[in-house]
Amino acid sequence: MSFKKGVDPKVFRAIQNVDMQQLSECTEQEIRPVLPCLVRMGLISPLDTSKKCTTMKVDILTIVSGMELVNSIVALLSIDFHRLETEVKKEQQLRQKGVTLQNDSILIGNLSNTSMALEYERSDMTRRLSILLGELLYVQSQIQENESAETSSYIKPSELFDNDIFAEELSDIICIALAELPITLNILTITETLLHLHNGPAIVCRIVANFPDCFREVCTYLIQTGEKQEESKLSMVRASAISLLCKMNPSQALSIRSKCVELCRMPALAITLSLEHNQNGSDDGDMVAFISGLLLGNDQTIRNWIALFIRTGQKKKGEISSNALQQLRDELLRRLQIIINSSAEGQLVDSLVASPPSNSKRKRST
């Protein structure tokens, strides 16, 4: 099965609302990204022993019972996480001391006689989990070391993550590790690390699908750590991750757009989210009102921010800002053309004219 980038909105909504009926109607391929969450919910002993909870567990096990991949996740849940946590903490301390050689890893060990991909492939689940966490912590140390180096490559090479064949299982392992080691592993730190790896945005999307309560937190973090004006590879990857998350949870797309405006960061993303929302909606959306509010609003900081985005988009052709600006222009021209075509003999149709609020108040009062 190929690595599916993105999660179906109905699956995310079902996980978020714990709607087993909705999940039971989904296909195996649609459920695949949230399998770690489902298996863990079905096997871990809950604190709630009510009949409703018991019934839900039975429903979950019924949904996943026919899937062969469940066995590998069950094997993950059988690992001694207390011992693993101790090793992870030692690894973190080692990396904090400035040890950045991969072969010095406590979790991975010395791989001088073999490749990491081969070692991973022939190992059991316990060893695979150790190798993956060791690789993530190693990449994390590389990021911190090269944080100020502008010439460093944003996407880090990795034998594990560069192979799409491992992507499904890597996502599963990370989800289980985050669930079982919540104090040692931080979802935001893991998210930042994954952005520097192949398939990073897609894996981040899967992680959030398995931890739906973290959706807002992860999106806010991605925006806060983004650029004020998207001018680098860094912003492109972040925008890709946020876009996947908003496609998975489209009801929050405009809320995430508002966060971009509030923080005055990633304007091209804000425009793109608006365009995608308008395409998915049944009406024309609020694109004109949104852009007018940015350009003509009372907040000088926001006006300067969007004005700089427009100037940058006009100068740097082919960049993220330029592409988003062109898409915005095309959309506004399309709407203008609709208005012109609907205006016979130069008269605007009443439905295309928004009455001022003051007029409507006067009419109601008479």
Rank of each mutant, 00 (worst) to 15 (best):
Ile15Asn: 00
Ala354Lys: 11
Arg311Met: 12
Ala253Arg: 01
Glu345Arg: 13
Tyr120Lys: 01
Val18Gln: 11
Gly318Arg: 05
Arg127Gly: 00
Met56Tyr: 10
Ser292Leu: 08
Asn280Lys: 10
Gln29Thr: 15
Asp124Met: 08
Ile73Leu: 05
Arg83Thr: 08
Leu137Thr: 04
Ser240Gln: 12
Met20His: 03
Gln21Tyr: 09
Lys317Glu: 12
Lys97Glu: 13
Leu76Trp: 02
Met287Asn: 11
Cys219Glu: 01
Ser351Val: 07
Lys156Asn: 10
Cys214Pro: 02
Ile271Val: 15
Ile15Arg: 00
Arg362Tyr: 11
Arg83Glu: 10
Lys317Leu: 10
Gly346Lys: 05
Leu333Trp: 05
Thr220Tyr: 15
Glu230Pro: 01
Arg32Asp: 14
Asn103Glu: 14
Lys315Gly: 03
Leu254Phe: 04
Val74Tyr: 04
Cys260Pro: 03
Ile63Leu: 08
Gln96Glu: 15
Glu135Ser: 14
Leu35Ala: 00
Met125Cys: 11
Leu194Ile: 05
Gln224Ile: 07
Lys97Asp: 12
His196Ile: 06
Arg32His: 12
Ser72Gln: 15
Glu217Met: 12
Ser105Met: 04
Ser153Ala: 15
Thr193Ser: 10
Leu275Pro: 03
Gln224Asp: 14
Trp305Ser: 03
Thr126Pro: 00
Gly285Lys: 04
Glu169Arg: 11
Ser232Gly: 02
Leu84Trp: 01
Glu30Asn: 13
Glu28Phe: 03
Glu217Ser: 13
Asn341Pro: 02
Leu101Thr: 12
Asn210Lys: 05
Val204Arg: 01
Lys5Gly: 01
Ile256His: 02
Ile155Gln: 11
Lys316Gly: 01
Leu328Lys: 02
Lys52Asp: 08
Glu25Tyr: 09
Thr220Ala: 13
Ala253Ile: 06
Met56Val: 07
Thr62Gly: 02
Gln347Ser: 14
Val139Met: 00
Ile242Asn: 07
Arg13Asp: 13
Ser258Cys: 10
Asn199Gly: 00
Asn278Arg: 07
Cys26Ala: 13
Ser158Arg: 04
Leu43His: 08
Val288Cys: 10
Ala270Tyr: 03
Cys37His: 08
Cys260Tyr: 00
